[in-house]
Amino acid sequence: MTNCQVADFYPIQKLVAVNNKQIAIAARGVKMVYQSGREIFHALKDINLNIHRGDIQLLMGPSGSGKTTLLSILAGILTPSGGRVNLLGEEITKMSDHQLSRFRLENIGLIFQSFNLFPALTALENVQLALKIKGIKGKKAKEQALSLLSQVGLADKTNLRPRNLSGGQKQRVAIARALTGSPQLIMADEPTAALDSRSGQRAIELLRRLAKEEGSTVLIVTHDPRIIDVSDRIVHLEDGMLLTSSSAIA
């Protein structure tokens, strides 16, 4: 019985632990339907999924399979057409926009394929800005930002703007930004897609450390087979449907 099938038998309110492992992310019957004129497109069809705390979970599948849509819904960025999503024991599909923003700010770190750094800001300022919106300002923010950039190996690049950084360095700044406020959930969309082999490996190692040393739950949408080696579980999506869930380690 796959992990996602086990969870189907439990009401979402009680999804605290399955098989003695705490559940960080749970989706029940999640659907996403887009309508354009008379045409209806089912981007996601009845998705049920559990992700354990501290796991690195991969979401794989061909282009257009609905991976990024599912990631957006699980991150509370997109509201599903149907179904429920529970993050860290709280049902986010019942939250108001304001509550959802607050929840994301406090609990989720996002990493994007195209980095989404602010081009006008230096590496340090990009991280400081994230701290600022989390309420950490001034000297404390600067110290924390410098510490995070050191952790990702960019202590000597703090005053450079994104245009002066390589792709790998930009992604590490983005990872440092995602780590501000020590979020319990890290959600990454193709974090290694724009990186060369060496930079990709470095980013993967950072994400692995986050999960194994910091206890964060990491959900990664990827095509990159290099990440499979460090992941705990993989789910495959095709045509908006969850096909399989497997343990990478096993």
């Binding site: 960025i77 923003s101 994301r104 989720i108 996002l110 919106i133």
Partner: peptide, 16 residues
């Protein structure tokens, strides 16, 4: 707009 979208996705309050 993408930068402002990033801020929104990160959970920045509208006021910011």
């Amino acid at each position: 707009i993408k930068e402002f979208g990033t801020l929104k996705a990160m959970g920045a309050p509208d006021g910011v």
